[in-house]
Amino acid sequence: MPKVIPAPDELSKPFWDGVNKKRLLLQNCAACDAYQYPPRETCATCGSVESLGWKEVRGRGHISSYIVIEDGRLDRRMPDQPYNLAVVTLDEDPGINFYSNLPGTPVHQVPVGAAVEVFFEEVGPGQLIHEWRVTR
């Protein structure tokens, strides 16, 4: 079964539009230069609203932790169990993290600390998501 498909809303549309163009755009605050993900209405660092924009990041990161989902609750993912769920921190701001199933990495064999790079995976007609793969 395929992954669950994200449903963009007004706030998240610029992010998903970027993903659908295979670009990783994060909210960035011009006032304090903080990245923010997931997107918010205001800057969580300085509270600014009008200074929030979008900035492309390189899409490099590291695996900080992982689990293996063996008995999850999502209908669409039942056939995939067991599967990896890793947390990836962004090199440009390790305070930013993303989930990843680490496609290509065998279940239970996740190299914690390894470098990863973003790629984009189609989960529905015209809808990509950002995924990550180990680079070394």
Binding site: P6, A7, Y37, D75, D80, Y99, N101
Partner: peptide
Amino acid sequence: NAEDYAKGERQWTVPWGNH
């Protein structure tokens, strides 16, 4: 959890399996 689409805050977690 039985839906095909992830809305709201779930769009940042559910596609990867975090319900």
